[in-house]
Structure formats: C-alpha cells, structure tokens
Design a protein around this nucleic acid. Structure first.
Lengths: 155, 155
DNA sequence: ATGTGTGCAAAAGCTTTGCATGGAC
DNA sequence: GTCCATGCAAAGCTTTTGCACACAT
C-alpha cells in the first residue's frame, strides 16, 4: 500500500544507525525488522508486538512497534497493507519495491504476485484520464489452491 | 472495500419491504439511498449523516446510517471503499457491479474507471496460482488532470 | 548536559452494540 | 399485541499522542 502522506522530518543523531537522511534505524526498528524477516507474511502491529513479547519479555512496547513500522515504511523496507478489516498489516519487501496479494478467504494465508498488474496501465490512464499515478492499492480475495473444494471456514 | 468480513453471499432482489432475511429496505435505507443518488461520490458514513442532518433536521441518526449502509452493501446497491485512511467511504453502484477509483492526492476528488482492470487477469491467476478470485480491492492514488494542468484525452 | 528513543496511560477517531422507545401492522 | 427500525449512550478497536524517564553520546 502506499497512500502515505507522512512527511515527518527527523534529524540529529542518537542511539541509532544512520541509514538515510532523516530516517534512522533505531533499536526498536531493528527488533521489528528481525521479526519481519522471520515472519515473512502479513502481520498487524498488535500481532507483531504480542508475538515478540511472548518470546522475549523485553521486546519493544506497542507504541514503539507502531513508530518503528512508520519509520520502516518511510525507508521503503516495509510495506503496509490494508485489507479493509480495520487492521493494517505489514510485510518486509525488497527496498523500494512493492507487491500485491492473493488473500485466501478460507485459510487467511496470502501469496504475493510476481508482478504488479497495475504498472502496465499507467500510460493509458495518464492518456485517457489525465491522471498521473503515484501509488495504488491492490489486494485480491478468493480461494487458494490448497483450499479449493474445502468447506468455508467460520469467520 | 467490497466484501470483507461479512458472509452473506446471497442476493435477494425484491422491492419494497421484504427482500431477504436481515436485508430489507427500511426507511433509513431509503433516505441514505436518496442521499447517495444525489451525491454520487465517495462519502463516509459520518459525512452522510452530517450532511443529511444539515438539510433535514429529522434525518436518520448515525447508527441508522451505519446500519443502512450495511444493508445496502449486502443488497449490492452500494459499494464500500476503503482508502486506507481509517474512514470507509460509500458509493452507489449499479446493482451487483463495482468500479475502481483514481483518487487525487491533491484535491481529494475521485473519478471512477470505466472498466475493471482486474477481471481480465482472473483466468491467468487461476491458471498460474490455482487461485479463484472472488473479490478484490483496487484504488489508485495520484494527481488528477485539474491539479496538474495536464489534458485528458477523453471525457 | 543534551538530545531522543521508549513505555505507559490517556486521547482520538470511526464503528458497533445494548437497551429502551416508538411506530407499523 | 407483536415485531422491528431507530436513537442515544456506552463500549470496542486500532492507532496516535502527551509526558516523563532512561540511555547514548
């Protein structure tokens, strides 16, 4: 997802590794990053916090998780995804890239698409609508191959 | 958003009062529907309520607006759209159809696309991923022609 | 000492729910 | 009378913010 619009200007030095102008990799960020590296699936901030805490009592608090995710998104290392259920999910992505998901309504697992389906339309949309695309959100819901034929899960 | 958490997959098409269990066109629904017919743009529940109240002191309360929108979405008359800013928007659509938007990040206005860009990929996604699409979310953000001075070819 | 990352609690929004009322039949 | 849509207030949720403190330099 990419609706963004945050333009927070951090500056100065502190207990962190300077990575990019105005965006630092703090201790909390690193912990969250570590977690996401292992998780590699869409996870909400609350879940990240809860799961980190269960395996490490001293893991960052919820506030720090939120703030870390904000930084990581700003750095382009993490992608925020909104599935429309009121809970934002996050996922590690190759720096600056993004991808879209096939979200199974049965098992709730998600697979991501190899390629972005939207980029190819940028030119025609600019031509036909005079609209210059800056970002987009695309999430696809349905039934994955492992679940086809199976009864629907309760919600 | 156009599907999320709800599980009613049935479409009872009737008319006046009784349509389907839990799906009927109440007085509140009709008022909301009337409003949306005139509005014809993405509007949040809170806005619908506020605007209806300013022009009619006896307009339905916020709770009723929410409940009405839920019914209308279930009936396939209204589409819910999540722009990722924590506020769901609603819009009248031809029964059973849906469409996607070009949302201007400058003036916040939105135009909808003539055609769905995703349907054409359904077959290849089923073939390549074994995934059967049931619904999807697509919203595009950028700068509209009025805000960039760029001409648009059509419309 | 200075600057800032962190945690807790409180606040902020949007949305949902509980409960009592009133209207429709 | 029964059924149910409605409204108000309260609750529920995720996310953000205020503020004090701890830590790094």
């Amino acid at each position: 997802m990419a609706e963004d619009s945050h333009s927070h200007e951090h500056h100065g030095h502190g207990q962190s590794t300077t990575l990019s102008p105005n965006l630092r990799l703090t201790k909390g960020c690193k912990k969250v990053l570590e977690y996401l590296e292992r998780s590699h699936d869409l996870t909400s901030a609350q879940d990240i916090h809860g799961l980190m805490r269960t395996e490490d009592e001293s893991a960052p608090g919820l506030t720090t998780v939120y703030r870390s995710l904000e930084s990581l998104v700003g750095l382009g290392l993490v992608q925020a995804v909104d599935l429309g259920d009121g809970e934002r999910r996050y996922e590690l992505v190759p720096p600056g890239e993004h991808h879209h998901h096939l979200v199974c309504e049965n098992c709730r697992k998600s697979v991501h698409l190899d390629e972005c389906l939207i980029e190819q339309f940028e030119d025609s949309i600019r031509t036909n609508y005079g609209f210059q695309i800056r970002s987009h959100v695309l999430e696809i819901f349905g039934v994955c191959k492992d679940c086809s034929g199976q009864p629907a899960a309760k919600k």
